[in-house]
């Protein structure tokens, strides 16, 4: 049961990095991919139908953590509280920008929302760099500091940006597409860059997770038996529903969406 709980946690966190990494990365590059209001709206439309379904993977990660490893969750989250404040603040600012962009008045309002999306996306990516640095240096219960943090945060952020770029080159059309394509380059098949960053980005949290004493700190057997069973039953359904969403909106975007 402990093993299955660890697998569920790994699934959720990898799911978030690979899927949400696309919209975090695209959001980080928003000012460069789209010049002007209409182009930026197109960039947002490239991930609009997915970002809501993407971000729930991180909520699910927190859920599995608190359900299957409750005591560890408390120590980990309270230890990393300052970094998590930054992560959550970035997340909130970014989502508020995305949701509000099309609802307010005028080009200035939309430019401000675009800025919120970009700043928020960078904050999320950099915060994850700090979290991963703390885990990888074997000190999961205190925020990373010193040279490791200075190196890791921008490196992880760059990886997110590269992932977003690969995604953009597959989803966009028109001038934003040309910009993404120039940066990605033309080596290999069009989907190769995204696949490469997906493997790197998905593997990173798994590697970092080995620093946590997950198996020893799992919830009590009675809880775990019920909870892991329930989660293991619904997870394939969740994956199927999300796969359907990706299939339904698979084409390149040529026009704006609700956002």
């Amino acid at each position: 049961m402990e093993t299955l709980a660890v697998v569920l946690l790994a699934c959720c966190v990898t799911g978030w990095f690979v899927l949400a990494g696309t919209d975090i990365g695209s959001g980080m590059l928003l000012p460069w991919l789209g010049r002007g209001d209409a182009e930026r709206r197109l960039v947002l439309a490239s991930f609009a139908p997915f970002f809501l379904g993407n971000e729930v993977w991180l909520v699910a990660t927190a859920g599995v953590l608190v359900g299957c490893f409750p005591a560890l969750e408390g120590e980990l989250l309270s230890g990393q509280a300052p970094v998590l404040v930054a992560l959550l603040a970035g997340w909130i600012v970014r989502d508020a920008g995305l949701w509000s962009r099309g609802r307010g008045p005028g080009p200035r309002w939309r430019a401000a929302c675009d800025a919120a999306v970009t700043v928020g996306s960078w904050a999320v990516a950099l915060s994850w760099g700090l979290l991963l640095a703390a885990l990888l240096t074997g000190r999961p219960y205190e925020p990373a500091a010193g040279p490791v943090a200075v190196v890791a945060a921008p490196a992880v952020a760059a990886l997110f940006a590269a992932h977003g770029l690969g995604f953009a080159s597959l989803r966009l059309t028109g001038a934003p597409y040309q910009r993404a394509r120039r940066l990605v380059g033309r080596a290999g098949r069009p989907w190769h860059p995204l696949a490469l960053t997906a493997v790197l980005l998905g593997g990173l949290p798994l590697w970092a997770g080995t620093a946590l004493p997950l198996a020893e700190r799992a919830a009590s057997a009675g809880t775990l038996a019920l909870l892991v069973l329930a989660l293991a039953v619904v997870t394939p359904l969740l994956v199927a529903v999300q796969a359907w969403v990706w299939y339904a909106f698979r084409g390149r975007v040529t026009g704006p969406s609700y956002l």
Binding site: V56, V59, A60, A62, G63, V64, L65, V66, G67, C68, P70, A71, E73, G74, E75, L76, L77, S78, A81, L84, V85, A219, S220, G222, T223, L226, L227, A230, L231, V234, T235, L238
Partner: peptide, 25 residues
């Protein structure tokens, strides 16, 4: 819950954590 109230997940996590986890997933 984890950031500011780790005592809660530490003491009562076996029950509270499970219902929160089911809610999210």
């Amino acid at each position: 819950f984890g950031m500011a109230w780790s005592g809660l997940t530490h003491e009562a996590g076996n029950i509270l954590g499970a219902s929160l986890a089911v809610e999210t997933l």
